[in-house]
Design a protein around this nucleic acid. Sequence first.
DNA 1: CGTCTAATTTATTTGGGTCTAAAAATTTGT
DNA 2: ACAAATTTTTAGACCCAAATAAATTAGACG
Lengths: 222, 222
Amino acid sequence: MKIELSFTEENYLKAIFSLSTIKESAVSTNDIANKLETKASSVTDMIKKLAEKKLVDYKKYQGVSLTKSGRKRAVSIVRNHRLWEVFLFEKLEFSWDEVHELAEQLEHIYSDKLTEKLDAFLDHPTHDPHGDPIPDKDGNIELEKNHALATIEVGITCVVVGVRDSSSLFLKFLDNSKIKLGSTLKVLHKEDFDNSMLVKIDNEERSLSNQITKNLFIKEVE
Amino acid sequence: MKIELSFTEENYLKAIFSLSTIKESAVSTNDIANKLETKASSVTDMIKKLAEKKLVDYKKYQGVSLTKSGRKRAVSIVRNHRLWEVFLFEKLEFSWDEVHELAEQLEHIYSDKLTEKLDAFLDHPTHDPHGDPIPDKDGNIELEKNHALATIEVGITCVVVGVRDSSSLFLKFLDNSKIKLGSTLKVLHKEDFDNSMLVKIDNEERSLSNQITKNLFIKEVE
DNA sequence: CGTCTAATTTATTTGGGTCTAAAAATTTGT
DNA sequence: ACAAATTTTTAGACCCAAATAAATTAGACG
Ligand SMILES: [Mn+2]
Ligand SMILES: [Mn+2]
Ligand SMILES: [Mn+2]
Ligand SMILES: [Mn+2]
């Protein structure tokens, strides 16, 4: 019922999906090569294969975009990935910087039934441990125009809802800084010189570099 | 720290392990070929690769046996497999005839940490849903000289502790027959003609063919 | 038009796994 | 003990997925 794809093919679909949510237009060969750390020529090859299988629309030199079924497949991999991350984080008590790597493996174990059972077992979570939304069974994914902490005005209070950078390094830094999803923080000052920010968190004043504030997604609270 | 092996290499190790628990001596090329549904020549090829990697001891024409490290690896795959089966069966509520296929995939996701976390989450189970023993972290595995129901004398009462055949067909048959691990049954009669057996189960008399009694592991109760 | 950049083609490579057919070693049966 | 049968190993080839370097081409744009 669901065509067999290799891990690599699935990873290409995921990459194209993720790139096409950033810029709305067709995705370029180079961008994909870049993301997957491979060469443009390899990407062209793979794109042809995926086009054969009707997973992408492809016109030479015009970039590539997912078809209905390609998008569906990509989203289901993302759903799988994020559900496994929740499982690893909540049930097995892995830390949020460890889950991604394992989920990269687990996401390819494809079985609709497994995914749905897992989803039910986890009580239909809506977000993964990094604050990213989990697509529903039908492939609908909440597209939240996240704003980064960096964009917030002085005086506003907000709560952390996600991270842009899920690298182990950044996540560990946040752990050490006692910043996690749900943490409340108030912007006290923005430093024009280096774009760093002074915030109050846990009744403590802390300076966060632009590198950090760019990568923290927040929601304002009234 | 743990050498990378392909799925196929791991499956060969598992096959050799499983065959060498049956007959104590070195395992023959043909037996492996048979088990993995491949050709003897392919097996020889693979054995050489595994010997290179010091996972098996191999002398031409003398069959093959696992080295310490080969055995360790094989056992850890089996451990992984059976823990995932428990997870799928107990937590996700898959039926016992569905879990094996998925576990064949999941067993290859190798991460010591994942295995140990899973083990703890499941509360250190000792047996999988088919009654097979789960090796411990150090690779010790209970070798129970299982006897089949077929070998039991008339008049004895016993309890089902495992199955030899884990095929979906057999397991579904058992489900339909309301026979499961822990079921108690008493042998009323053995039919010499076709080796079938008359048993009392759930206060009901039932005739079980030799095909069935050969594949049910039991423990006598006093 | 000419030039630059991005994309594609082509020809090869690498790695993993398998197979057939023929040769060699071992086992079996008398 | 020896020929026949069986098992195992070799040698050579094939196939597939994926990647690459190098050469070529298309598009964009001043
Ligand atoms: Mn992730
Ligand atoms: Mn995530
Ligand atoms: Mn199994
Ligand atoms: Mn089992």
